[in-house]
Simulated assay, not measured.
Amino acid sequence: MSSNALYTDLSGYYDLMCADIDYQSQSNFVRRIHQIFGNQGRDYLDLACGTGPHVHHFINYGYQASGLDINQPMLDIAKQRNPDANFILHDMSNFKVEESLDLITCFLYSIHYNANIEKLSECIASAHAALKPEGVLCFNSVAKNKIDNRSFVKHAAEHEGSQFSFQSGWNYCGEGEQQHLLLKIEKTTDGVTEIWDDKHPMVAVDFNQLTALLEPYFDVHMFEHDYEKITPLEASSGNAIVVCVKK
């Protein structure tokens, strides 16, 4: 099963896959970041928004919020949950907006869903063009040279009488501009288990490469991947929250 087919077929289980994610803390962190670095505007777009949990929180903060994703079933759920928000079916690498924005986010490492370095560069340029002066682009990223292929995260959930087990981890072969998100899902119903194994291709960069792509457009600030406090990135860290202020 291809990655896109799996993503589509399991869109109804997306929230189960992400059940252990603290969307509130992530949104609170970015709101603080925007208050510190931003232009104090309230026009907001979430790239790769999925079912819209971050959009929901930013609406509650008083933002004019919108979301963009390539998956229509995800957007259908997002719109049902956030009827006042605008949702766009589009690829994040070459998007345009009708009205300029103050804040753009891309949570859950989704910036890596750009297919290659060229597409990532296009995404950065698109975000820059969409932002107002001193607008902020904020996303999280993993450095390809810091990936441990042996490391996985796993959690379980129950839904409509079925038990689910979700396991995911990064994989990088050690060279080139492609890494993968390895995903394994087990669904057990009445003692019968179905298993999906999937391999999502994603663009691979180290933080030096990423900074070089961003700096023509933005003043770049790199922080530790900690949503509870704002801490400058240490040289040994492989996960970062990247804050970009439009030049």
Rank of each mutant, 00 (worst) to 15 (best):
M1S: 15
N4V: 11
A5V: 13
L6E: 09
D9Y: 14
D9R: 15
L10C: 13
Y13C: 08
Y14F: 13
D15Y: 10
M17R: 10
C18V: 08
A19P: 01
I21D: 08
D22A: 07
Y23E: 08
Y23S: 03
S25M: 07
S25D: 06
Q26R: 09
N28P: 00
V30R: 02
R32T: 15
I33N: 03
I33Q: 04
Q35L: 14
Q35K: 10
R42S: 05
R42F: 08
R42T: 11
D43Q: 15
L45G: 06
C49S: 10
H54F: 00
H56W: 03
H56D: 10
F58E: 01
I59H: 05
N60I: 00
Y61F: 08
G62C: 11
G62F: 01
A65Q: 02
A65D: 05
L68I: 14
L68H: 09
Q72H: 13
P73G: 03
I77Q: 11
A78P: 05
R81M: 12
R81K: 13
N82V: 04
N82K: 04
N82R: 06
N82C: 02
P83F: 06
N86C: 11
F87A: 10
F87C: 13
I88M: 14
L89C: 08
S93G: 02
N94H: 12
F95V: 04
K96W: 07
L103G: 10
L108A: 11
Y109R: 00
A115T: 09
A115H: 02
L120P: 01
L120H: 07
E122N: 09
S126A: 15
H128I: 08
E134L: 06
V136W: 01
V136T: 13
L137A: 02
K144L: 09
I147W: 01
N149I: 09
F152T: 14
F152N: 00
F152H: 02
F152Y: 15
F152Q: 03
V153A: 05
V153S: 01
H155K: 10
A156E: 10
E158P: 00
H159G: 04
S165G: 00
Y172A: 02
E175I: 03
G176N: 12
G176Y: 05
E177H: 11
Q179C: 10
K184C: 02
I185T: 08
K187L: 06
D190I: 04
G191L: 09
E194L: 12
I195F: 13
D197M: 00
H200V: 07
D206S: 06
D206W: 03
F207P: 06
L210A: 07
L213G: 03
L213V: 01
L214C: 03
L214N: 00
F218T: 06
V220C: 14
M222I: 12
F223E: 07
H225Y: 15
D226E: 09
E228G: 10
K229N: 11
I230T: 12
P232L: 12
S237V: 13
G238W: 04
V243K: 02
K247T: 07
